Amino acid sequence: MASDGVVVEIGKVTGSVGTTVEIPVYFRGVPSKGIANCDFVFRYDPNVLEIIGIDPGDIIVDPNPTKSFDTAIYPDRKIIVFLFAEDSGTGAYAITKDGVFAKIRATVKSSAPGYITFDEVGGFADNDLVEQKVSFIDGGVNVGNATPTKGATPTNTATPTK
């Protein structure tokens, strides 16, 4: 695992066909100046998982989280898009600690492993708008004895992609 920078880890949970599971997305290594904004994309298989919603985690402190935390689910493109932009203008609602960034709610549709993997990152910046190093650890849903650990090695991303 990367020793510096922010680590975004997609949790690994267990479920069975027809059940709804909650998959946490963790941030670790949050910089001392916090995270003022970030955007990134995960990939998944809508034939295996139906993403039914995404909720902000406990490290989102904006009293009205829909102003700073936004997501979009595109089953036709097989992606989930995340956007966080601190909304106070003063840094008061920045992410300042490690913990759960988001909770992905999904219904298991198939007995195949439900991988959720890193696809791309736009950027991560602290309260001074300084770009942060970030790496990703894939996860998803274990169905029966299947284990979604494909790509469990962190993917280092030093520069934003478009």
Score class of each variant (00 low, 15 high):
Asn156Lys: 10
Ile116Gln: 12
Val17Tyr: 14
Val7Ser: 10
Lys103Ser: 10
Ile73Asp: 03
Thr147Cys: 13
Ile23Ser: 08
Ser16Ile: 11
Gly15His: 13
Gly11Ser: 08
Thr153Tyr: 06
Thr96Met: 04
Thr161Tyr: 12
Ala158Arg: 12
Thr19Trp: 03
Leu83Arg: 00
Asn142Gly: 08
Val143Trp: 06
Ile35Asn: 13
Thr161Arg: 10
Phe118Gly: 06
Lys150Gly: 08
Cys38Arg: 00
Ile35Met: 05
Lys150Cys: 12
Asn127Phe: 02
Asp87Arg: 15
Arg43Pro: 03
Ser111Pro: 09
Ile35His: 02
Gly139Tyr: 13
Gln132Leu: 09
Thr159Arg: 09
Tyr93Glu: 13
Phe27Leu: 07
Glu9Val: 12
Thr71Gly: 00
Gly91Asn: 02
Gln132Pro: 03
Lys12His: 10
Gly18Ile: 14
Ala146Leu: 09
Ala36Tyr: 00
Leu83Asn: 01
Thr161Lys: 12
Ala106Met: 08
Ala92Val: 07
Arg77Asp: 04
Ile52Cys: 07
Pro24Ala: 04
Asp138Asn: 10
Glu86Leu: 01
Gly57Thr: 09
Ile54Trp: 01
Ile54Asp: 06
Asp70Ala: 15
Thr157His: 12
Ile51Lys: 08
Glu22Trp: 15
Lys109Thr: 10
Asn145Lys: 14
Thr159Met: 10
Thr90Asn: 06
Thr155Val: 12
Val81Leu: 01
Asn37Val: 01
Thr66Ala: 08
Pro148Phe: 02
Ala102Phe: 07
Val21Cys: 13
Ala85Arg: 01
Val8Leu: 03
Thr71Pro: 00
Asp128Glu: 03
Ala92Thr: 10
Tyr93Ser: 13
Val7Lys: 10
Lys97Asn: 05
Asp128Gly: 07
Lys133Gly: 04
Pro24Ile: 05
Pro148Gly: 03
Phe84Trp: 06
Asn127Gly: 03
Ile59Val: 14
Thr149Met: 06
Gly122Met: 00
Val143Tyr: 11
Asn142Lys: 08
Glu22Asn: 07
Asp4Leu: 05
Lys150Leu: 13
Gly89Leu: 03
Gly99Pro: 01
Asp119Lys: 03
Ala36Pro: 02
Ser32Arg: 09
Tyr74Thr: 00
Ala85His: 06
Gly89Ile: 15
Thr157Pro: 12
Lys67His: 15
Pro160Gln: 11
Thr14Glu: 05
Gly123Arg: 00
Asn37Trp: 00
